[in-house]
Design a binder for these strands. Sequence first.
DNA 1: GAGTTTGAAACT
DNA 2: CAGTTTCAAACTC
Length: 776
Amino acid sequence: MPAQRTGIGVVNLHENDPSAQSIEINSNNSFSGNTISVDYGQLKGHVLNPLDNLEGTLENLEPTESNLGNVDQVLVDSSDSNNHTQIQIVNSTADSGHSEGTLLRLSDGSVVSSLIDNSQIVSASSLTTASSQAVKRQLNASSSSPMVTKVIITKNPNSSQPQAVPIQLNPSSLQSLQQGQALTFNQTMAPAVSVVPQSAQTPTKTITISQQGIMSPQKQYFALPVSSPKPGITKIPISPAKTPTKITMIPVTVGKSPQRIAPASGVSVLSKSLSDSATYTAVPVSSGPTMITLSPSKVFKQGTVVQQRPGQIQFQQNQAITINKPQTQGGVRQVAIPLSSMQQIQGSKVQYVRLVAPTQQGQTAGIKTSLASLVQGKQIFTTSGAHPLTIQQAGGQQMKITLPVQSNHPRPVIASSNTQTVQRILLPAGPNQLQLRAVPSTLAQIQTSGVSSLSNLPPGTTILSSGNAGSGQGFALVPTMLSQMAQQQQQATVQVRPMTSQATVIAQPLQNRQEFIPIASNNPVLSASVANSTRNNNSEGAIEPTGARPRKPCNCTKSQCLKLYCDCFANGEFCHNCNCTNCANNLIHEEERSRAIKSCLDRNPMAFHPKIGKGQIGNGNRRHNKGCNCKRSGCLKNYCECYEAKIMCSNACKCFGCKNFEESPERRTLMHLADAAEVRVQQQTAAKTKLSSQISGVPSKPPTSTATGERLPYTFITSEVAEATCACLLAQAEESERMKMPPVVQERMVIEEFGRCLLQIIESANKTKELIIFAE
DNA sequence: GAGTTTGAAACT
DNA sequence: CAGTTTCAAACTC
């Protein structure tokens, strides 16, 4: 094994100065030429984010700088008692030469730090080879000093002893690392050795950052590595305890075969509280689109800018957005999100995606003006608050897309750049809305064919484009899973899914997912609703009153819901309202989950592909791709995946005693029984509906009490209540029609709305009845 | 609800 | 790849 060598990691933010190209870290010691220039123009691989309880691993960490050698580990250790954050980079290069000014470039092209070498010895270090023990040296910075002091522990070139080197930094550049918090990157394939500074070949450099007097509780960031072009997963799980909002980025693969959703194989996770303030970050992805969806309930109700101008959220080069308390400017709420820095737009430090709430014309115009003045010649687009959404590309081209306007939902966002590679559309996510997406090949396709289709997309949908205009790029609509967010401490989740140049299929716990049609019909987009799992077929089409597709809760006890035994996991969904124990199929255990996904995919690359595909004969013939292996059930029980999916066994099956074929009398008998049962259910449903309608026809002023004097709850079905109910039903009908739902779904939505109305009436009646009883 | 059966998934 | 074990859902009582 090569000798260990360590370097210094420096993570800085230049939050308040988007125009800054670099930060100079000047060491006031004898280190000759000891000026380190951190090119923030290249800091695109990192997200600066709150540092709450940051711990995690960075996999596939590898430098590409030839003079850096192999980086084994990047460790951040906050365990020192002086509230200093330390970052350590462990390098296995045998060469102990200097590396001043060297940029540590991760495999995704991002820069995580600069390295300093040959710094002056300040003190000795007690570094050990303990694998998990980071270098722990810090400089006791003066608490009264407005400057941030960094301490570098490095080898004295003359004595081979570790040393600490203070570095004066511009405070504005260090609003990043929160004291006492750790960010750990581990390269899983790397040697476990952490630091061996004793040897002349193993200089150790550690940086400690003191934030005294600097940190703003609303401006705390960390550097977050993002996806690697390799299949491996890079991510940093973040404890949700203090960071109830998460954004999950999943690597986007372009040019590979179409993939169905894998369960959120998070590449990076970022989280942040969305209480009064929040920070969001876009994580660039090395080879694909990057996308952010912000929870509207939090962001767009509260969301406006803190540091930036009123009513705006800037996403600057440091890739962090801080959203503070609700602000409005002329009644307009805005969220400006920059396009991913991955786009590598040169020269433009600030780019925006603008989200504009409905407003009056003049106000909108004012915002546009403001935006134009903000974006330095690289304005990507603007949107108006009116129903037609205008996308203005940098080239001056405009396109208008009419999107549904829903109350209580933020405006959709459509971002595009005519010169860059990422195009995206963010539809504001609503609560309990999950979506299925699919895929026009270009933004122009959206323009030409997607105008009406877009209106079908549910709030929260994100459409991604992998870029490479005109060369087979694809859009992927990415679901948000707000219902799960709600469960998981109201975390907001954004996921970037693997994408192909042809089609992208994303399966998520999508409510209504079978209801959304692909934007581009010419793309072989597979719907997640198309039998991605046989076990869900029975419930397809059923929609909860919330609009959610009901999903059977799992009961896993031993698998942690991280194996394909678990239906949730197998379907690429997080567990939600399940009965499982020790569940790790959630955002909190994103790292474990990602590993499990990877493991499953290693065993079977098709593990997350639909089990039920189309047969060879015709499009209408479904068949089990793998076939069943039943031995005792005769393939006439739900043990059999074919039978459960209501399809015949095929020659792909290896079952014994199969009775699940067309002419099978047993099967026909079962089918008849099943049909009869279904008819009974339908009759019962119809009866209930009829009863409901009769209830709604109760006279508006019925008797107020029974013969015994008990007051009747239907007293409250007054004409006003009936009218209000009808209004609700009409509104729901119009809404569903406007969303261009299929007629069946429209009917269902109206009926469900009626159910909700009834529940409200009953509740109100009962409450009032209780009050009356109490009063009596 | 407890226990049994079943077959897919995981493991060896 | 085959045999075995594990697992959770389906099923039975």
